[in-house]
Amino acid sequence: MKFRSILLGVALAIACAALPALAHHAFNAEFDRQKPITLTGKVTRVEWANPHARIYFDVKNEAGEMVNWDFEMGSPNGLMRNGWRRDSLKTGDEITVTGWLAKHAPRVGNAGTVTMVATGKRLFAASSEGDANAR
């Protein structure tokens, strides 16, 4: 059992080490780690640009209205080194995003993971998840 814990720890350490870093600004300057969120919607735009790639996607709210969300990811150089390409996400793709809400901006968040609904493919190292506890 102890061995299993160690092994799991090693696996997590390797996974975390491969995550790209949120180097441009401190996580807490913009986001609230106490406000995790999971959203599913359709991609409306991808901004593959520095200092952060951003995905915009429409999500139906509780009132049935479409609301557009803006989620920040890592920088393109870091995402590229972890396998992303600028066309990894396309307009119309249905995605599930887990992440954290911004402190002071509505419908803005930081993406921890992005999963393609159609295939279940999780776009590994989508963002700054590994820095969620970083200041």
Partner: peptide, 18 residues
């Protein structure tokens, strides 16, 4: 090295808290 031009789409700072 990969080009990193920070100013090209900087939007984070408008969300920083006071």
């Amino acid at each position: 090295l990969i080009e990193f031009i920070c100013q090209e789409n900087e939007k984070s700072s408008q969300h920083f808290e006071p």
